[in-house]
Design a protein around this nucleic acid. Structure first.
Lengths: 183, 183
DNA sequence: ACCTGAACACCGTTCAAGT
DNA sequence: ACCTGAACACCGTTCAAGT
């Protein structure tokens, strides 16, 4: 079952569409700032500047900063889910896809997993959707799936936070993990 | 080999001792704020208030806020390492100790693992020391030890960040992890 | 030696006011 | 409908000045 990534764009009036487009444009700019300079650079003033307006104007398009972060989390989960889905059901390939996505999108990854996201601001089920390939890869056992997901998250999180000693062989750590959970 | 938790208190002059004591008192207050109200409550002004001075005065005892955070990380690693050492070499007991420590010290845990700590501000080797019980439990294989440590970190981090669906059976996820890595 | 008050350059956010 | 300028209550941090 391959459900497409949820895109919350119900049909509506042209003005609502314009508003939504502007919002999307702001989110694009936010993502660009995130990629270029990291989370700490993503301030409302910087974002406003990037999109060509004053900071208070942003609040016509975003409820507050948490709203912005939730929207970016949504994008991150969608993008990640697509990568995992594309990797197919093989555990080793999945693990590789997971790590690659995280390392090429460090700021988005931290945002997607590192903050206690407001579940009520995300489109329902997107988390499950993003994790579905993992569940499939371990044969549907949800406990095992959570264990694998946690192991992958831990490896990535520690790597992104520079937690390993300088010369550590992380490939070997990943291999040990994959072996432990059975190929 | 049971090396004691490093405590950086070389003998020195009485005035230096007084200064260090004051610093320790500030760190105690900081830890208390952390436990009581979380990281976001730990501001320099709040801390100064708690210890009975003005915010700028803190800078006579702390280089800057990162210095404060590094000192708290040090305390966290020491405390965690003690818990793990006390748990002994059994993997299941170690896992339980790891999870318990994290859940009873959520703010300290997040601080100890969640920020890319300045290694040069910590007493050297404290990370290795804290992780030593894990390495011992898996029989000295460092790759495997890193895999286990990452798995435990992932489970705890996702739990602390409310990443699991509301009714998720986390005990089962831990059990699956322990089984995967062999008791 | 230790502490304070005033200040600086930032934050997120609100609100009246403009078009 | 959309945007701005001024303002508020915060940050971390510096610095001259007091004792």
């Amino acid at each position: 079952v391959t459900t497409p990534a949820p895109t919350a764009t119900p049909q509506s009036s042209p003005v609502a569409t314009r508003r939504a487009a502007r919002r999307e444009q702001i989110l694009d700019a936010a993502e660009a700032v995130l990629v270029a300079d990291g989370v700490e650079a993503l301030t409302m003033r910087r974002l406003a500047d990037e999109v060509g307006m004053q900071a208070p104007s942003l609040y016509k398009h975003l409820r507050d900063k948490d709203d912005l972060l939730a929207a970016l989390q949504e994008r991150a989960l969608a993008s990640m889910g697509e990568s995992l889905t594309a990797a197919g059901p093989d555990l080793a390939r999945l693990a590789h896809a997971y790590r690659s996505w995280a390392l090429t999108h460090p700021a988005l990854y931290a945002l997607a997993t590192g903050v206690p996201l407001a579940r009520d601001r995300l489109t329902p089920g997107i988390e499950d959707w993003a994790a579905a390939p993992l569940v499939a890869a371990v044969g549907g056992d949800e406990h095992r799936a959570r264990a694998v997901w946690a192991a992958a998250h831990g490896l990535v999180d520690l790597e992104l936070n520079d937690r390993y000693p300088p010369g550590a062989d992380l490939d070997a750590a990943w291999t040990a993990t994959i072996e432990a959970f059975g190929s």
